[in-house]
Nucleic acid binder design. Structure first.
Lengths: 221, 221
DNA sequence: ACTTGTGAACTGTTTCACAGCA
DNA sequence: TGCTGTGAAACAGTTCACAAGT
């Protein structure tokens, strides 16, 4: 009766990964796929795949597996990819411009409709289909064009103010690339991506490995 | 006696966040900080902060808190940020170029020493301190300059081959921005960043909220 | 009095193992 | 027979609560 309730972030991330695997299977002409195969492609276990999908329904056929096309459609729907999401990028520096023209965003229905920046040098330039507009117009643009998502790539110092303007305009979600975490009302979904953390994770892992293998003075025991 | 063993990814990510908080405290002239304050800045609980740190040692003083400068140094050391890590970017498109000039990487000791690309139009251009070199030289460059990390921003179709070249050159870690997951030996640390997944997480969250709040026909209960 | 460091309790996630169905 | 869907078991991560140190 009731719809899925508390789905973990890990499950949602894995759904995205299944979607990509299904895309690739579809491109190669496969019609059905088992949880074993779906798991192998993403380095997961079959039970994990079945459990993840079971939160949302019964999409497979016992003894047979999943229909690639059907499952792809179901996951796309679950992830909300069956619609177009208008998206703006705030901060038209190198990272913002790169993200604005990132082809995989538009392919999944995230349509970059405009960029915003304070630097008057940059105004009017087009990035893909989108134009760079003055940041002062952010709130009214978001409201008038019913923009769903804002991608934040401003300097850290402007992050909170920019988030406030997005929220004032009625934004639904913010993907934040700045190293600060802006305060937003809980009706607005916030997701933080910190590229430095990813590299720090690598350097930590290497340092750990060195400690473990470590003191290679003389022989090991 | 023995060093920390299995540290969870979440703990490592939080350490990175503590580091940024400490940087900001230091800049504002604070000398000591309690787990309560350190937690509040990152939206965590004090117990979490103390537990995370306890995996690595006892850095605080009971009744008093942590010395901002000392703790910052300890965390930087734990994360391996007390050294310089030579890093190359493979794929000098918009995203690769943006990452190569991302100021926060160099600030944490990740020094971008070169970019690599197949497109001869791009060769020789400088991005920050680094030059764009032909991808054919990747393996020998990595070996000769003892490069630690490779950031992968090639098209998906070139990801595995590029990862192979990095591995052959003796790379220690790969930060992969392509939507495929390349196979690497387990001595090489791999971290995948998928920007589309982050936006999909947002659209999922909004769709979920709609289902919950959902049928706003009539009154709610 | 105050705040850390940590075992113990709790909560959440993953894996197991098998009943149910094609 | 083969593979899904799912409770139950195992494991991992978080929070609690308090002894210990200054």
């Amino acid at each position: 009766m009731s719809s899925p309730r508390k789905i973990s972030d890990s499950t949602v991330r894995r759904l995205s990964s299944y979607l990509r695997t299904l895309d690739s299977l579809r491109a190669r002409g496969h019609d059905t796929v088992s949880s074993v195969h779906l798991a192998a492609a993403g380095g997961l276990t079959p039970a994990q795949v079945r459990k993840d999908l079971s939160f949302f329904g019964s999409f497979g056929v016992r003894g047979r597996g999943y229909d690639v096309h059907v499952l792809r459609g179901e996951i796309a729907r679950i992830l909300g990819l069956d619609r177009k999401w208008s998206t703006v990028v705030v901060g038209a520096g190198r990272l913002g411009s790169a993200l604005a023209s990132y082809p995989r965003f538009s392919r999944q229905g995230f349509r970059i409709v405009a960029l915003f920046d304070n630097d008057s040098e940059r105004l009017g330039t087009r990035i893909g289909d989108a134009e760079i507009l003055p940041a002062t117009e952010l709130e009214s643009y978001v409201r008038q064009h019913e923009v769903s998502f804002g991608i934040l790539t401003t300097p850290a110092s402007a992050a909170q103010e920019t988030a406030d303007r997005l929220v004032a305009g009625g934004i639904r979600g913010i993907l934040n690339f700045t190293p600060t975490v802006p305060e937003v009302p809980e009706t607005v979904h916030l997701r933080n991506v910190n590229l430095t953390i990813e590299l720090e994770g690598l350097s930590f892992a290497i340092r750990e490995a060195e400690i473990r293998e470590g003191p290679q003075e003389g022989e090991s025991d």
